[in-house]
Amino acid sequence: MESPQAISLMLSNVETIPGHSLVNSLGLVSGSTVRAKHIGKDIFAGLKNIVGGELKAYTELLNESRNEALQRMMADAHSRGANAIVNVRFATSSVAAGASELFCYGTAVVVQ
């Protein structure tokens, strides 16, 4: 999917990177991914619905997808020369039955 060497920037959802000082702001960056559920997992989740509780297949799928969205956002910020992203927010919406969009956005900054 993404490049094998994962880009790792400093992220935070507060207005600064704690322990660092902001030098420059480079604007809004975002990343998103739309994922549909694997039909097998869907059937299994349907079976799990007999007792309710946590649906592990879905939890894993959404966590994976959210990491991918974060990776895309970080790639965007990296290409602008940022080394951190502040005020990261997440949004989730279900675009169609069986598919959901995971979106994250933040402000790319240079910190010291």
Partner: peptide
């Protein structure tokens, strides 16, 4: 809240995120 006091003395930070999917049972 974005606690300024705890941020001031911080060495470093990391973004944490986790999610869980739960559903009620069919009978419910």
């Amino acid at each position: 809240t974005s606690n300024k006091v705890s941020s001031l003395s911080a060495q470093s930070s990391v973004l944490l995120h986790t999610s869980i999917v739960v559903g009620p049972s069919m009978g419910q």
